[in-house]
Design a protein around this nucleic acid. Structure first.
Length: 352
DNA sequence: TCTGGGGTCCTAGGACCC
DNA sequence: TCTGGGGTCCTAGGACCC
């Protein structure tokens, strides 16, 4: 028997969260964005989108399109809190939940769906539950696999529910332009169009050696997905693999004192993130962008697993001195990875 | 209009070993 | 003088996503 997968996506998540915080924003065009010079829109609500305001758009341009735009500031603590509620609520309905990002989950409802007349009935129950208890609207895609569920939830936004059956792939999926396919971005879309592939349907019927140069070893995988086939399992217990903090400087600089102060502050923030996540890191990475926005990174192993900002700082500075002392810096980032998880450490200690 | 911030995964190429 | 072939591991950069 086939599976039934839901993909649930919170509509305009950060902007909706801001409206929960301040209900007076409800019928206004809003952009979640810090008010600093040079900042860009993180999320616009649907009213602002009607003016052409989009994610990643510079704030100055957004304000030209929509002078009455309300800029909310960014409140990550709030979004994290709401996101956790959202995930908990999804887990009420099935244990098989993949948390794909802060505002989207995949649910394998193959078993629970049997208690309902139609898959759509369960989707409506979940949507009402999220609306009542969290106050947010969601889009839900319902399909026999992960990929089709994702494509389905994208078809009706905001606040839609879409069933996408395998037999509807040709009529509903194939006409979509190739850049609408999940996993295909600007670069791949351009290469594919040059090869004469403009729609998902074009990809579905092409031979894998025709698109090998775009997808490499994943060519068959992408062609299968374009045909609506995806046998991947939901990833229900993924652990964080890396953490990073970065900041874009107001003005590019080569002032060493200024740079060290920023790196140290980033390392303090990184330490807090590691504590929150319960991890010790074995590698540290420094990222630099120069005034041309060219990005560089350098990584090193740490002498011992740590979450100490002092150790992050000392080693990040070694990397900076060895590689970037001549660079005029526009962005600085510090990251860590190769984690040891504290709950696993304490489990192991119990054995002794 | 000068261009955020935080993630994951993949690949090419170099180092090193046998 | 010329110069194997295969495997693994690591790093930096790029593509993509939200």
């Amino acid at each position: 028997m086939g599976k039934i997968i839901f993909h649930i996506d919170i509509n305009a998540f950060f902007a909706s969260a801001e409206t929960l915080r301040d209900p007076s924003l409800k019928n206004k065009p809003i952009a979640v964005c810090s008010n600093k010079r040079g900042s860009v829109v993180t999320t616009a609500n649907y009213i602002a989108r009607e003016f052409g305001v989009r994610s990643a758009m510079p704030l100055v341009e957004a304000l030209k399109l929509c002078p009455q735009l309300v800029v909310t500031g960014v409140h990550f603590d709030l979004y994290e809190k709401i996101s956790a509620q959202f995930v908990e609520l999804c887990k009420k309905y099935t244990e098989i939940v993949e948390v794909a990002s802060v505002d989207e989950c995949y649910l394998d409802v193959t078993q629970v769906i049997k208690q309902y007349k139609r898959p759509l009935d369960l989707a409506m129950v979940i949507r009402k539950d999220i609306k009542k208890n969290i106050g947010l609207d969601v889009s839900i895609g319902i399909a026999p696999n992960r990929f089709l569920a994702k494509m389905a939830s994208d078809m009706k936004k905001p606040n839609g529910m879409t069933v996408l059956r395998q037999k509807e792939v040709q009529s509903k999926l194939w006409p979509l332009p190739i850049e609408r396919m999940h996993g295909i971005g600007v670069k791949s879309a351009e290469l594919l169009k040059n090869a004469g592939i403009y729609t998902i349907g074009d990809l579905a019927v092409c031979k894998s050696n025709h698109v090998l140069f775009v997808f490499k070893k994943n060519a068959e995988l992408f062609i299968r997905r374009a045909n609506g086939e995806d046998d991947s399992e939901l990833d229900i217990d993924s652990m964080v693999k890396s953490l990073s903090q970065s900041t874009t400087l107001m003005n590019a600089t080569s002032d060493y004192d200024e740079i060290t102060i920023v790196i140290e502050q980033l390392c303090r923030e990184l330490q807090q993130r590691c504590i929150d996540e319960g991890v010790l890191a074995q590698q540290v990475t420094i990222t630099v962008k120069d005034e041309m926005f060219q990005s560089y990174s350098r990584t090193m192993k740490l002498p011992a697993a740590t979450n100490s900002h002092q150790e992050f700082f000392e080693n990040a500075l070694l990397l900076f001195d060895a590689n970037f002392s001549e660079v005029t810096v526009k962005l600085l980032g510090v990251g860590c990875s190769h984690f040891i998880f504290r709950d696993i450490i304490s489990e192991q200690l119990k054995l002794f």
